[in-house]
Computed example of a mutant assay.
Amino acid sequence: MSIKIASSATAMSTLGGFIIVFGFFAFNLLSHGSLSETNDGSVLGLIAVNCILASSGASLTALMYNRYSDKHTHKWSLLSAINGSLVGMVSISAGASTVYPYGAFLVGLVAGVVYSLAAKLVERNRVDDPLNAIAVHLGGGTWGIVSVPFLDSDHGLFYKANILSMWLIGWNLCGLLVIIIWTLIWAALIFGIMSALNCLRVTSAVERQGLDVVQHGEKAYPYEMTGRSRSASMATVGDNRGQTDDVQQPIAESNDTAYATVQEEDDRSLKEPVSMSQISEADPVSAV
């Protein structure tokens, strides 16, 4: 069962998203690799415009998809708009200098839908991806690579249906396959070693206490300032001594989603630091 965890710092997420979007301008502009040659100014200007249009289009469709596809909330989601803008930047990176502005906007519109569908697929398969990085980078990046052979202003299939445009499709698909294989090999190697060394996941006791408290001795999120405690934002059902996983079940409360209060013994465990002996004895949380 998927566990819905309420966001704890939407303002910081917004700031972080803005910083990443701004960084993509530098990434895509500098990827041109030239500033002094003839026509560099027009190419750089095209890249900047395409980045804005693709980011805006993806943010729009991601926002609309979340608003009208969720039958339970029907709300405008700021976080969906932020991730939409990011996936737009990711998707246009492959063809930022080679597509027309309206083509960049089209790339962004489709990227927002791709992101939304990929995020649903990841969640349905119980993959632990709290940042939706798979949907943003794998989904948006895949669509971006595939879109270039169709929307390239010089040799795109939509403009010049010839043998070269067909070759472009083949080469881009080949490049996409190489990227996926290269990523899978290194991801399996790195995470496999971490899993073998038992340092990939923390224990359930540490998860409930929070790494901010266990590792640093400080609370990262001042819940007292908002009038809500950590225990009021999630429900933990089951005895940690008899189960390896904590099951959290959301319950409806007024107009928003709230979570049941943790049992008294769990509430006390959140206030009292977890000793290292308790951490070592607790069962590790199995990877989702």
Results as ranks from 00 to 15, higher is better:
Asp239Asn: 15
Ala220Asn: 03
Ile193Lys: 04
Ser269Gln: 12
Val214Pro: 00
Phe191Glu: 04
Met194Gly: 10
Ser233Met: 06
Cys199Ser: 08
Tyr259Phe: 14
Lys219Pro: 00
Gln263Ala: 14
Tyr223Cys: 06
Ile185Asn: 05
Ile251Ala: 15
Ser254Gln: 03
Thr226Arg: 02
Met234Gln: 12
Asn255Asp: 11
Ile190Asp: 05
Gln248Asn: 03
Ala205Ser: 05
Ala220Arg: 07
Ser229Arg: 06
Lys271Pro: 00
Ala260Asp: 07
Lys219Arg: 06
Leu200Ala: 14
Leu270Cys: 01
Gln209Leu: 13
Ile251Glu: 15
Ile181Asn: 13
Glu265Pro: 00
Val262Thr: 09
Asp267Ser: 09
Ser195Arg: 15
Gln249His: 07
Leu184Gln: 13
Pro250Ile: 08
Ala187Gln: 07
His216Ser: 03
Leu211Arg: 03
Val202Gly: 01
Met234Val: 14
Asn240Ile: 10
Lys271Ala: 09
Arg228Asp: 07
Val247Met: 12
Leu211Met: 06
Gly238Met: 05
Arg268Ser: 05
Ala232Lys: 07
Asn240Gly: 10
Asp266Met: 08
Ser195His: 11
Gln263Arg: 03
Trp182Tyr: 12
Leu200Pro: 00
Glu207Ala: 13
Leu270Gln: 05
Arg230Pro: 02
Ser233Cys: 11
Asn255Arg: 04
Gly238Gln: 00
Thr226Lys: 04
Pro250Val: 11
Phe191Gln: 07
Asn255Met: 01
Gln209Trp: 01
Thr183Pro: 00
Ala196Tyr: 09
Gln248Asp: 08
Cys199Leu: 14
Ala232Met: 11
Ala220Phe: 05
Gly242Asn: 04
Phe191Met: 05
Gly242Arg: 01
Leu189Cys: 14
Gly227Met: 08
Ile181Gly: 03
Asp267Gln: 13
Gln248Trp: 05
Ala252Glu: 14
Met194Cys: 15
Arg268Gln: 12
Ala187His: 10
Ser229Glu: 10
Ile185Phe: 13
Ala196Ser: 15
Glu265Trp: 09
Ile190Leu: 13
Arg241Trp: 01
Glu207Asn: 12
Ile251Met: 13
Leu184Met: 15
Thr226Cys: 07
Asp246Thr: 02
Glu207Phe: 06
Ala187Arg: 07
Arg228Trp: 10
Ser269Thr: 12
Tyr259Ala: 12
Gln248Val: 04
Gln209Gly: 02
Ile251Lys: 12
Asp246Phe: 00
Asn240Pro: 10
Gly238Thr: 05
Ala205Val: 14
Tyr259Thr: 07
Asn198Pro: 06
Ala220Tyr: 04
Leu184Ile: 10
Arg201His: 10
Gln248Phe: 00
Met234Trp: 06
Met225His: 05
Thr261Tyr: 04
Val214Cys: 00
Ala232Leu: 08
His216Val: 05
Ser254Trp: 03
Gln248Pro: 01
Ile181Trp: 12
Asp239Glu: 11
Glu207Gly: 07
Asn240Thr: 04
Gln215Arg: 00
Asp246Ser: 03
Arg241Glu: 02
Tyr221Trp: 02
Ala252Ser: 13
Asn198Thr: 13
Ser231Arg: 01
Val237His: 12
Pro250Tyr: 12
His216Asn: 14
Thr261Met: 10
Arg201Glu: 12
Asp239Gly: 04
Asp239Ser: 14
Ala196Val: 09
Gln249Met: 10
Tyr221Met: 08
Arg201Trp: 04
Glu264Pro: 08
Ala252Cys: 10
Ser195Lys: 13
Gly192Pro: 03
Met234Thr: 06
Gln263Val: 03
Ile190Lys: 01
